[in-house]
Amino acid sequence: MNENTAILLVEDEDTLAIGLEFNLSAEGYRVTRAADGLAAVEQIQSSLFDLVILDIMLPFLDGFAVAEKIRAKDPQTPILILTARTELKDRIRGLEIGADDYLTKPFHLDELLLRVKGMLKRKKWYKQATEIMPVYRFGDNEINFDNFTCRAGDKTVHLTAHEAMLLKYLIDHENKVVSRKELLAEVWNLNSDIETRTVDNFIARLRKYFESNPENPVYIKSIRGVGYIFRSEPSQNS
């Protein structure tokens, strides 16, 4: 079932790349390898990939820049950052730039394969969920989940993959309270208490796009101590 899934592996360490290629091929994925940043960009321009595994410390062009190029071409391609850089600021930068997941070296093979699987599954979920209803409207806002562009009032915004997924998840659970942890697990595929701030940052951005007054939101409200709730019809009394 994985045979039609193409993975681009961007890794400059030969020894690691050979092992990863072997394992991903054994899982049935079609693997293409790029050994540096420029080669990765070339591959991205010339062919389509279902998922990209990306190192950060790359020759010629670093992984962050490659991630930006990927996002510019297709906002929906899942990106898994695989790097030796463990600092929190790198993780946050990676996630904010639009990477879907962040795994640090040394890593466990099973974990990597599970995450790859999870990311592909979420991509599929998103695709199916948005195929039924690619355009969603609330208030003055119109969101096209297919190409991630939105009209908010009279301005046009481009969402990142995570912003879109987060919004989609909130909309799918309209009028229900969702916790930060749930959002992290479902949207980011992370099971961690540390990075709940990431959720807050993304919510803040969504509010900036869609709320006329982000300080006093009407659509995406915080429920103190629990999480967030989305309402397409702003209620009067709360």
Binding site: G19, F22, H108, L109, D110
Partner: peptide, 17 residues
């Protein structure tokens, strides 16, 4: 740390494989 982790992670990968 980068120089140490790179070979370490590839050794781990092969062993786990």
């Amino acid at each position: 740390s980068h120089e140490l982790k790179s070979p370490l992670s590839s050794i781990q990968l092969y062993l786990e494989t």
